[in-house]
Design a protein around this nucleic acid. Structure first.
Length: 869
RNA sequence: GGAUGCUUAGCUCAGCUGGGAGAGCACUUCCUUGACGUGGAAGGGGUCAGGGGUUCGAGUCCCUUAGCAUCCACCA
């Protein structure tokens, strides 16, 4: 038994422990004698440091991992990281730029070398942070989305889907990021409400000379227009159909056609149509066999179609063009308006809808397969909280094809080759044999394409490895609601398609971490908090407890330093309670533990412990950590520290060795179980204390010890008796405060009126009462009395001359009125026939007992009032 | 235009299957008692956003209104 330091110091407690755990192999899975439980970490991007959101997400997983490990599962929490295509490439680009070069200067191969250097550097940082957080990860199975095995899985999936007709290459309108110069998928576009304008121009009708008003929010695309469209039933324009309007941007003739797509109410009722820069216009262009001229370059500047604006930025061109048309007298009006405009998730620049040849996944059949399996409990993914299942389903029901090709270098190169002469497409795991005649596709795959395979590719799939057979499908995934579409849905359909299974049985969804004002933490606001700073200041145990016990599943969490301090104080409380226990366990060993002869308070404590173990375990299984936290906080602080330890002091000073031993045993057993129950939340401090108290040598470390089980059966009598005792003590203390009795002054009390258990007023309890509130229990009292209702009866206290008759009368009268109200309420319920006939019997009995108690208290109070009057 | 969440004590939030309103922080009074003043004891504070309904009984279930937030889909 080693000594605990006088003060809780999180820096000392947390130093070194993690490395010991890892070195001992406690987190390495593979014990075949146990049932497997597996979780794959959402692989963090190798772009930089982990933030508070990661800390939250990871701690939730660590709580599950430690809990399941203690429950005796072969727990495997698989470590890994994501290459994060566009994000990492941007970081490496920025680093190159700081050296005064660009990726084009060094070429693809050298660039990738630099990117791998970056990855190694940041992987090291991330592992360090995982350690600080206490993540009980299995590093022996760590994977990277771009490592050899996972790349093979990616290629197989691509080739198979291609061969099944579920991946195709097509020329369509995609979302183009002009800064990153790559295509994006629909969900990588963030729609933001920004101020724009609706420009209305006059188009001269060639045949009649009349002016046709056409409105647009994007005048710069007029260089790519092919026609003007009106609704076929719109009588305002029916005479113009088939005629031509002059495009005021470039003087070209645009045929006026009719299409039902046009909303007559919107704008002027006449729409300009740019098939290469708008998805709806594209459809109209297709339908009518128009050309699809592109007027914007990949970098967001105008091309030669824009004539004098060739090379100008698209937005500068817009302004210049409007000004010119205005000068020519063809600008009708500019109306400012708020509208949703797509921005790139990564670069935040305005996305350009762009006609481009890209690779797509045909989503409908894949999504339908998942949806079908969501109907069955045994095949569905269970969402916690449940409501996110609806979000998930609705997205899959309305899914569109997924654009998976990216014009980047950092990522999985698309396994497609084009014949240099014939243009023939070859897709395969191996390059074509006559490679000199072929050119491989330059593009790489969306980073989420590989992430989608993460729950099975990490175990060695497509090989039928032992790990794959044992740990897949995984048990649980933990992630934020913000990436249900990006990741959860995609894992769901790839798993379904390639492994005929769900990727995980459960998915626990958490919210976003917000700043103290409720705003999102972001770089631009500068309101982010570095978890490492918090850990330095308060320790990771405090941070973990704060993160996981202050919100319900799926809700956002506001960062609050006060609450982290509160967590620290709680840990400090545990620390000091542990010190107390140890001070009273001098020379006490595990062999001395004997729970066969216990005092009432010991029995009560064990009963409360049993209740807590049962309830905490149940809530751990439901991922209800706020409830667990609340419960353990109250159990430790109130039941264990405020009541049990204080009540136990009399026993610990007892001359009766049996009494003392029973209490020592209870202290040790309960403290040990408290440490176990709290271990998943605060692994460091609990492990430290555990190593200092007598413990089973077979359970050399707390993190691999067994989860607590209830001991014996709860003694209901002891529970009632101690509840009664607590009620007496509290009431006496209250009287002391009311009458400003000095702590040293003794009070004579009488419980004769109470319906107490006769055995109750044992010497033991008398000693306890005296110790706790200097109250001496007498059979009868003389002089002026105070009468107070308590938990199960009434308490009388002898106050001598101190009683203020008027105050006391007022108090008792108030009490009497309160009791009258309660009795009336209770009587009302019990005399209500419908209540008696419909309410459950237990409820009725409960109400009857209450009524009886109230009536008894009422009798005593009125009696006393009569005497005083 | 669809969907979701939130609205409970001064603040931040719990309250799960309906059965006498809770926690932490803050506030008031008192306490240098040997685990802890990062503490202890006792207290004050809420017509559970508004309205309607179901029920013997509603913070809890249903409908509705308002405010805040988020997601999805959109109109040139």
């Amino acid at each position: 038994m080693k000594e605990l330091a006088k003060k809780y110091n999180h820096l000392e407690v947390e130093a070194g422990a993690y490395d010991r755990w890892v070195e001992k192999g406690y987190f390495t899975a593979g014990d075949l004698s146990k049932k497997p439980y597996s979780v794959v970490i959402p692989p963090p991007n190798v772009t930089g440091k982990l933030h508070l959101g990661h800390a939250w997400d990871n701690t939730l997983q660590d709580i599950v991992s430690r809990f399941k490990r203690m429950q005796g599962y072969d727990m495997c929490w698989l470590a890994g990281m994501d290459h994060a295509g566009i994000a990492t490439q941007a970081k490496v680009d920025a680093r190159l730029k700081s050296e005064g070069i660009s990726r084009y200067d060094i070429g693809r191969e050298k660039f990738l070398e630099r990117a791998w250097e970056w990855k190694e550097e940041y992987a090291g940082h991330i592992r360090q942070q995982w350690g600080k957080l206490g993540n009980s990860l299995d590093y022996t199975r760590e994977r990277f989305t771009l490592d050899e095995g996972l790349s093979k899985a990616v290629q197989k999936v691509f080739v198979d889907l291609y061969n099944e007709g579920l991946i195709y290459r097509g020329e369509r309108i995609i979302n183009w990021d002009p800064q990153a110069k790559t295509a994006l998928s629909n969900i990588e576009v963030i729609h933001k409400e920004i101020e724009g304008a609706m420009y209305t121009f006059n188009y001269t009708v060639k045949e009649t000379g009349e002016k046709l008003q056409v409105a647009t929010t994007r005048p710069e695309t007029m260089f790519g227009d092919v026609c003007v469209v009106v609704n076929p039933i719109d009588t305002r324009f029916s005479h113009l159909i088939g005629k031509h309007a002059i495009n005021p941007a470039n003087g070209e003739e645009l045929i006026i056609i009719a299409d039902e797509y046009i909303d007559m109410e919107f704008g002027t009722g006449a729409m300009k149509c740019t098939p290469a820069h708008d998805p709806n216009d594209f459809i109209i262009g297709e339908k009518n066999g128009f050309a699809k001229p592109i007027c914007i370059n990949p970098d967001g500047t105008m091309n030669e179609l824009a004539g004098e604006y060739n090379g100008m930025d698209r937005f500068e061109c817009r302004a210049a063009l409007v000004k010119r048309i205005d000068g020519e007298g063809n600008l009708v009006k500019i109306e400012k308006m708020m509208h949703q405009v797509g921005h790139s998730e990564r670069t935040d620049v305005i996305v350009e809808p762009y006609l481009s040849k890209q690779w797509f996944v045909k989503m409908k059949p894949l999504a339908d397969d998942v949806l079908a399996n969501q109907q069955d409990d045994d095949t569905k993914i269970h969402f916690y909280p449940n409501r996110f299942e609806k979000t998930f389903n609705q997205w899959l029901e309305n899914i569109e094809d997924w654009c998976i090709s990216r014009q980047l270098w950092w990522g999985h190169r698309i396994p497609a080759w084009y014949h240099n002469e014939t243009g023939e497409v070859y897709v395969g795991l191996e390059a074509p044999v006559d490679i000199e005649n072929w050119t491989q596709d330059e593009d790489v795959l969306d980073t989420w394409f590989s992430s989608a395979l993460w729950p099975f590719s990490t175990w060695g799939w497509p090989e039928e490895t032992d790990d794959f057979k044992r740990y897949y499908p995984t048990s649980l995934l933990v992630t934020g609601y913000d990436i249900i579409f990006f990741w959860v849905a995609r894992m769901a359909f790839q798993s379904r398609h390639f492994t005929k299974s769900r990727p995980f049985k459960d998915v626990l969804i958490h919210g976003l971490i917000r700043d103290p004002l409720g705003r999102k933490m972001s770089k631009s606001l500068g309101n982010g908090v570095d978890p490492i700073d918090v850990i330095e200041q308060f320790g990771v145990d405090s941070l973990r407890f704060f993160l996981t016990t202050n919100s319900t599943p799926g809700q956002d969490l506001r960062y609050s330093e006060d609450k982290i301090k509160a967590a620290w104080n709680f840990i400090n409380k545990i620390w000091n309670a542990s010190r107390f226990v140890m001070m009273n366990l001098e020379g006490f060993t595990l062999e001395d533990v004997d729970l066969s002869k216990l005092s009432t308070i010991d029995t009560w404590m064990l009963g409360r412990m049993n209740q807590t173990i049962e309830s905490v375990t149940a809530n751990m299984e439901r991922y209800e950590y706020a409830m667990v936290g609340n419960e353990l906080y109250g159990f430790v602080w109130d039941d264990f520290c405020s009541w049990y330890i204080e009540l136990a002091k009399a026993n610990l000073q007892s001359d009766d060795e049996t009494v003392k031993r029973g209490t020592q045993s209870t202290l040790l057993v309960v403290l040990t179980n408290i440490l176990k129950l709290l271990h998943p939340f605060m692994p460091f401090v609990t492990e430290e204390i555990y190593s200092s108290i007598p413990h089973d040598e077979k359970e050399e470390a707390l993190c691999i010890s067994a989860w607590p089980e209830t001991i014996g059966t709860t003694d209901e009598t002891a529970v009632k008796d101690v509840a009664h005792l607590i009620s007496i003590i509290t009431t006496v203390r209250q009287i002391r405060v009311d009458y400003q009795k000095k702590p040293s002054e003794e009070l004579d009390i009488c419980l004769k009126d109470a319906q107490q258990n006769p055995e109750y007023m044992s010497n033991e309890i008398n000693a306890t009462l005296y110790k706790m509130c200097k109250a001496v229990c007498k059979d009868s009292l003389e002089g002026e009395l105070l009468v107070r209702p308590i938990d199960n009866g009434t308490l009388s206290v002898s106050m001598g001359e101190l009683v203020n008759r008027e105050e006391e009368l007022e108090k008792l009268t108030k009490e009497k009125e309160k009791l009258e109200k309660e009795i009336a309420r209770s009587n009302g319920m019990l005399s209500n026939e419908k209540f008696i006939s419909k309410a459950p019997q237990a409820k009725i009995d409960e109400e009857k007992a209450k009524l009886q108690k109230y009536e008894e208290q009422y009798r005593i109070v009125t009696e006393r009032l009569a005497k005083m009057a």
